[in-house]
């Protein structure tokens, strides 16, 4: 139970920090997508189906928080979690540079999905602007990996976020 509360608190921080703290550290209006980063971290430490469920749920809450385009982040984060689910079995997740590359790739694809789904709802982006935003957010996410991932990974493998296998609960 404690594990889920901590995950929810981290998610809430991911929701509020880009609009507050990262307002001071934005590069030309670009801020990181912390919710996507958090979903990537969760997906790296869970089975694909559960990761997709986390991605979709957190994305849906983010959509309700933003108050428009309900489902946009839900479907994009679910897709990002699905992609991580495929990649994580072939990826060495203890290696930080490799995790940075993974975050970069998944963030680019996730932000591209957000842009594409938004485009289907009538928002038109100029290619150059959209590319700058997608790459900007993705690089920002990637740069946050060395600062955040070691703690999160340790926590998932042996700390607060560690989940005991079912057979150990008996």
């Amino acid at each position: 139970m404690k594990r889920y509360v901590i995950m929810l608190i981290i998610f809430m921080l991911c929701l509020t920090l880009p609009g507050t703290l990262f307002q001071y550290w934005s590069w030309g209006g670009i801020k990181p997508d912390l919710v996507m980063l958090w979903v990537i971290y969760i997906a790296l430490h869970h089975r694909p189906v559960r990761a997709i469920a986390y991605g979709f749920s957190f994305g849906l809450i983010e959509d309700f928080y933003l108050g428009r385009y309900i489902g946009l982040n839900a479907i994009s984060l679910a897709a990002a979690a699905l992609l991580i689910g495929f990649l994580q079995q072939r990826w060495y997740r203890e290696n930080i540079p490799l995790t940075m590359v993974l975050v970069l790739i998944v963030s680019i694809l996730g932000q591209t999905l957000i842009m594409l789904f938004a485009a289907t709802s009538g928002l038109n982006w100029f290619f150059g602007d959209a590319l700058n935003i997608i790459l900007g957010i993705s690089f920002y996410n990637c740069l946050l990996v060395p600062l955040t991932y070691p703690f999160i990974h340790r926590s998932f493998t042996s700390g607060f976020l560690f989940q005991k296998p079912k057979y150990e609960h008996r």
Partner: peptide
Amino acid sequence: ITLTSIRLTGLGSDFPNPVGKALDRIL
């Protein structure tokens, strides 16, 4: 369902959002 929802809840649309309002109050 998600694509339809995205389409119906775009910028300027007026739809009840109790979850969003509750989150606003909390955050």
